[in-house]
């Protein structure tokens, strides 16, 4: 260690390590001030909260006992499941080529930019917004839900898979290229084995998230249990609403457990 470094080290006193960072504190104060301002725009008032909590209690009383006897729960749940499965399948199938095209280490920049734009576009819109547009385009029903969730799946799987491909080791790719392999062979023997495990994780997660969202798109008329829930809510049938919500939570929990199991099988 040189003398200069030693003297520099000696000059660092204990207080310097914990010196307050002015910029950081200013940032905290700024964020806090913004939050107070934003909260002020919400129009909170004591009476409003009190009245709201009164209504909330009435809701909770209306929820009990939950009603499972109406016959449209099971078909609604099954349709949600169908929407989730099909949109995951189609979405993943579309996402794979787009992800390969958007990986910067495999493709020339102009190709990857176009593919990236597609992924960003699919990711920026909430599935429900896409569902509204899809309902206007193809009419009410499960098809609109499938289109909406396919959009979301392409964005999600595409982004994560592209990142996974960009992180692979290029040595193996080089070795396979050196044997004179074609592009498809490079993909099949160089890329796929390196990203397969993570890919299965993404798809399992995506299916789970599609299942959750497929219970929601029905609110705007895109099929599934959400439509049943929305109409029950509008006719103040709160015990039926509670029944549907419990069923949705059950379905999502089963989905989560299955997702963990599938990931474990492929680890």
């Amino acid at each position: 260690m040189s003398a200069a470094a030693l003297s520099k080290q000696a000059s660092v006193s204990r207080a310097d390590f914990f010196a307050p960072s002015i910029a950081k504190r200013l940032a905290y104060v700024g964020v806090l001030a913004y939050l107070v301002y934003a909260a002020a725009t919400l129009g909170l008032s004591f009476e409003r909260v009190q009245q709201g909590i009164g209504y909330g209690v009435r809701f909770l009383v209306g929820f009990f006992p939950p009603n499972f006897t109406q016959t449209d729960i099971i078909p609604g749940l099954l349709e949600s499941l169908q929407i989730a499965l099909l949109s995951s399948l189609i979405g993943t199938a579309l996402a794979i080529p787009i992800a390969v095209l958007s990986a910067r280490n495999l493709m020339p920049p102009w190709v990857s930019w176009i593919a990236r734009l597609i992924i960003i576009f699919c990711r920026s819109f909430h599935p429900v917004i896409v569902a509204i547009i899809a309902v206007k385009a193809v009419g009410f029903g499960a098809l609109a839900g499938i289109i909406a969730l396919t959009f979301a799946s392409v964005g999600f799987v595409g982004k994560l898979l592209a990142e996974a491909i960009e992180e692979i080791s290029l040595k193996q790719i080089e070795a396979i290229r050196a044997t004179g392999a074609s592009f498809m062979n490079v993909i099949a023997f160089g890329v796929v084995p390196q990203v397969m495990n993570r890919f299965i994780g993404f798809v399992a997660y995506e299916t789970d998230s599609n299942l959750r969202n497929s219970t929601m798109v029905g609110v705007v008329g895109a099929g599934g249990i959400g439509g049943t829930l929305f109409s029950a809510f509008q006719r103040f049938d709160y015990d039926f609403v509670a029944g549907i919500i419990i069923c949705i939570i059950g379905l999502v929990m089963i989905g989560e457990v299955l997702q963990i199991y599938v990931k474990r099988v492929f680890r």
Binding site: V49, Y55, G56, V128, T215, M216, F230, I248, V252
Partner: peptide, 21 residues
């Protein structure tokens, strides 16, 4: 997590009226 934002929003709109709150 299972109850989606839209469904939460239905409840809170019924409780506190329409609006950002």
């Amino acid at each position: 997590r299972s109850i989606s934002t839209l469904i939460w929003a239905l409840f809170f709109v019924a409780m506190f009226g329409p609006g950002p709150l």
